[in-house]
Computed example of a mutant assay.
Amino acid sequence: MDKPFAGQVVMPAVISDIPEYASPIDGKMITSRSQRRDDLARSGCVEYEPSLSPTKGKLRNKRFCDKHGLTVSEEFR
C-alpha cells in the first residue's frame, strides 16, 4: 500500500458492529451500522457528534433540565 506519510504503515481498519438497540424514532430493532444509517436517513436525522457540538454534550437550558429532571452543567449556570 502507499505510504501517504513518511514512516507510517498504512493498513485497513476493522470497526466492530454496534450493539443492538430499539430505534427511538419508530421502535424497530437496529442491529447493524447499515440499519442505523438507513433509520437515520428515513427519518431525516443525523448522527450526533459531541465533538462538533458547541456545548460538547453538556446541558445549558434550565427549562429543559427542569422538565426532564436533569441538572444544568456547571459552566452554564
Rank of each mutant, 00 (worst) to 15 (best):
E20H: 12
S43P: 00
D26N: 15
R37N: 09
A41S: 14
R36T: 00
T55G: 00
P50I: 09
A13W: 14
L52M: 11
L40Q: 01
E74F: 01
E75Y: 00
V9T: 15
S53Y: 10
K67R: 15
P4D: 02
H68K: 15
Y21E: 04
K58S: 06
H68I: 06
G69A: 04
D38F: 02
K3Q: 02
R63W: 12
P24K: 10
M29P: 03
L52N: 11
S32V: 05
A41D: 08
D2K: 15
E47V: 10
F64C: 00
D39P: 00
H68C: 02
G27F: 04
G69P: 04
K3S: 04
C65A: 07
G57F: 09
M1A: 07
A22P: 03
P12Y: 12
E20D: 11
F76N: 04
I18S: 04
C65K: 01
E47L: 14
A13E: 15
I25E: 10
K62C: 01
G57N: 13
I25G: 05
I30L: 03
V46E: 12
R33Y: 08
R42F: 02
F64I: 08
V14Y: 15
Q35W: 03
V9K: 15
T31A: 04
L59G: 00
K67H: 10
K3I: 03
D39L: 02
A6C: 08
P54Y: 06
S23P: 01
D26C: 13
F76L: 05
T55C: 06
E75C: 02
I25L: 12
I18G: 05
M1N: 06
S23H: 01
L70N: 01
A22E: 07
E75Q: 06
V72N: 00
A41H: 14
K56H: 11
K67W: 06
R63T: 13
P4Q: 03
G57C: 11
F5R: 15
T71F: 04
P12H: 10
H68G: 01
R42D: 03
